[in-house]
Write a protein that binds this DNA or RNA. Structure first.
Length: 489
RNA sequence: GGCGACGUACCCAAGUGGUUAAGGGGGAGGUCUGCAAAACCUCUAUUCAGCGGUUCGAAUCCGCUCGUCGCCUCCA
C-alpha cells in the first residue's frame, strides 16, 4: 500500500485511488518570466520521482503540469525589455523545457498554458458568479471568500486568523480583504482578452482550476506543488474548484524549499542559482542526486561558498557528483564482470536492494532512505567483486546480477544512473580537467614515461611522476590492464 | 501577532512507540599495492536542543523553555 503525506490531513495516509490503477495528478508548474533555478528543480525533481515510482508500481499516471504564461512579472519584464509579454513567456518556456529535459524530468502528459485556456477560465468564473461566489467590480471580478466557509482548511487557518493580517491594496475593489482577483480589467500596455466583464486578463489562481478541470475532470487524485504555494495559491484553487464543481483534489502534496545561507532561495531575494549556472560546472545528474538525498518534504540545503579567487563554488554539489561517480564506477565494474558470463538460467530473485527501496518509496516516497539502501547494495557488490572466494561461484554471479539489475531499476525510479557508466565517467573527467586546467595529452604522455620507468624497475622515477601528476590533481590507478587515471573530485 | 514545521555525531541526513539510533562526507587505524589510487574492513552518538509528563517501554506521544525556518505579499 502506498502511503503519502497529505497536507490537508497533516499526516501520512493510504493512497486510495478514485479508479483502481489510475492516478490523475496535477502539479503547479512555473511562471515563465526568467530562467529556472535550483528551487524549481527541487520541486519538479520531487514530483518527477513521485510519478516515476507510481508508474514503477504499475499505476497509470496522467500528469498535468501547467505553464503560467501571463502574469505581472512577465508583463513587467516585457515592458523593461521592450518586447511583448508573450515573447518573454515563449522564450522562458522554451528555456524551462530545455532545462527540465537536461535534469531528466519526464515531460508531463499535458502541459497546458494559461493563455490557451482563457475561455475555460471565463467559464469557471461564470459558474462561480452563478453561485454567488464571485462578483464584478469596476471591470475586475473577485472571489467572495465569505461564501466559502471552509476557506483556510488546507493551510490550517481560519478565516478570522487570515482576516487579521489581510489588507486591500490601493486600486483594488474588493468587498473583503481576503477576496482575491479572478479577473483583472485591462490596463494600458497589458495583454488583454475579451470577457463578459470587459477586456482583461485572468487572476493567477484561476488557471489551475480551469486547466485541472479540463484535463482531469471534476475531481482527481493528487495535487502537488512547492510548499510556498499552500497559501494562498492552493487555498484559492480549492475555493474556486470546489465552489464551481463541488469537488477537487483528494490528496495534496507539497515539496520543501531549497535553502541557501539559511534563507529560502527565491527570485525576489536575489539569491538564486539557475539550473544553467549549475550545468556550467557540474553534471546536472549530481544536482538531482543532491536534491533527492533529502526527503522531499524537508528543506534542502544548497551551499554556496567562495574559492580563493572569489568565484562561487558548490561543495554540496561536488560531494553529490563524487558519490554519483562511485555509483557509476560500481556499475561499470558490475557490467565488466557480468558481460562475458552467460546469463543465469533463471532470473535471480529480487535483491534486498529492490525490496528495501520499494518499501522506502512506498512510505511517502522516501528517496533519502532509498539512497541509503543503494549504498548498502553497492558496498556489497564491490566486496563480492573484490573477493572471488566470498561465496560459491554460481551464487556470487547470481547476487551480482541481481544487484546490477535492481540498481538500474532503482536508478530508473530516482532518475539517476541511466547512462552508460563510461559516458558519465569520461564526461566528468573531461569537465574536471577543464576546471583544473589539466591537459589530457600531457597526462597520457607522463603515464607512458612512468610505465617505462616501472618496467625498468626505476621506482623512484615512477613515484616522482605520480607525485607530479598528483600535485596537479591527477590520480593514477595501476590495474592489471594498465594505468588508468582520474581527476581528484 | 496568527498559522505550520523543524532542532539526530565534526558536517549532511534517514528513522516518528519496542532487537545493536540507516546511509554518506570528514577523521583515525587496517587489508590490498613495488609505492599509490580505487575498493573493502574496523573505529568515530549509552544517545536524539533542554526540562518535565504519559507508558512496562519514547529520538519517536503530550506540555513548557530555548533556538532555527517557512507561510501570512510575488514565489517551486
Amino acid at each position: 500500500m502506498q502511503r503519502i503525506y497529505d497536507t490537508r490531513a497533516g499526516k501520512k495516509v493510504d493512497l486510495v485511488l478514485r479508479e483502481p490503477g489510475k492516478v490523475g495528478m496535477y502539479v503547479c508548474g512555473v511562471t515563465v518570466y526568467d530562467l529556472c533555478h535550483v528551487g524549481h528543480a527541487r520541486t519538479l525533481v520531487a514530483f518527477d520521482v513521485i510519478v516515476r515510482h507510481l508508474r514503477a508500481r504499475g499505476l497509470e499516471v496522467r500528469l498535468v503540469r501547467n505553464i503560467t504564461d501571463v502574469d505581472d512579472k512577465i508583463i513587467r519584464k516585457g515592458n523593461a525589455e521592450g518586447r511583448p509579454a508573450a515573447e518573454v513567456a515563449e522564450c522562458y518556456a522554451d528555456a524551462m523545457s530545455t532545462d527540465m529535459a537536461a535534469l531528466g524530468i519526464a515531460a508531463p502528459d499535458v502541459e497546458p498554458r494559461a493563455t490557451q485556456h482563457i475561455a475555460d477560465m471565463i467559464e469557471v468564473i461564470r459558474r462561480l458568479e452563478a453561485r454567488d461566489l464571485a462578483y464584478p467590480a469596476e471591470g475586475d471580478v473577485y472571489y467572495s471568500v465569505a461564501g466559502f466557509p471552509s476557506y483556510g482548511a488546507l493551510s490550517g487557518q481560519s478565516i478570522d486568523d487570515l482576516q487579521a493580517g489581510a489588507r486591500i491594496e490601493v486600486g483594488e475593489h474588493k468587498k473583503s480583504p481576503l477576496d482575491f482577483a479572478l479577473w483583472k480589467r485591462a490596463k494600458p500596455g497589458e495583454p488583454a482578452w475579451e470577457s463578459p466583464w470587459g477586456p482583461g486578463r485572468p487572476g493567477w489562481h484561476i488557471e489551475c482550476s480551469a486547466m485541472s478541470h479540463r484535463y482531469l475532470g471534476d475531481s482527481f487524485d493528487i495535487h502537488g506543488g512547492g510548499s510556498d504555494l499552500i497559501f494562498p495559491h492552493h487555498e484559492n484553487e480549492i475555493a474556486q474548484s470546489e465552489g464551481a464543481f463541488g469537488s477537487f483534489a483528494h490528496y495534496w502534496m507539497h515539496s520543501g524549499m531549497v535553502n541557501f545561507g539559511g534563507e529560502k532561495m527565491s527570485k525576489s531575494l536575489g539569491n538564486v542559482v539557475t539550473i544553467r549556472r549549475v550545468a556550467e560546472t557540474h553534471d546536472l545528474e549530481a544536482l538531482r542526486l543532491l536534491l533527492i538525498s533529502v526527503h522531499y518534504r524537508s528543506p534542502a540545503n544548497f551551499t554556496i561558498a567562495r574559492d580563493g579567487a572569489g568565484l562561487a563554488v558548490y561543495p554540496d554539489l561536488d560531494e553529490a557528483e563524487a558519490r554519483l561517480d562511485y555509483f557509476y564506477r560500481t556499475l561499470e565494474r558490475l557490467d565488466a564482470f557480468l558481460a562475458p558470463l552467460a546469463p543465469p538460467p533463471a532470473a535471480p530473485p529480487p535483491s534486498d536492494l529492490a525490496t528495501n527501496v520499494g518499501a522506502a518509496m512506498d512510505d511517502d516516497f522516501n528517496s533519502a532512505a532509498a539512497i541509503g539502501h543503494l549504498y548498502d547494495a553497492f558496498v556489497l557488490a564491490n566486496k563480492l567483486l573484490d573477493d572471488p572466494k566470498a561465496m560459491p561461484k554460481p551464487e556470487r554471479q547470481k547476487a551480482l546480477a541481481a544487484i546490477a539489475r535492481d540498481a538500474r531499476a532503482v536508478g530508473a525510479t530516482l532518475g539517476i544512473m541511466l547512462r552508460p557508466p563510461a559516458e558519465f565517467l569520461l564526461s566528468r573527467r573531461d569537465r574536471l580537467c577543464v576546471r583544473r586546467t589539466i591537459d589530457r595529452a600531457v597526462v597520457e604522455a607522463r603515464i607512458i614515461d612512468r610505465t617505462a620507468a616501472r618496467k625498468a624497475k626505476e621506482f623512484a622515477r615512477a613515484d616522482e611522476i605520480r607525485a607530479e601528476l598528483k600535485a596537479s590533481g591527477v590520480e593514477l590507478m595501476d590495474t592489471p590492464t594498465g594505468t588508468a587515471w582520474r581527476v581528484a573530485g
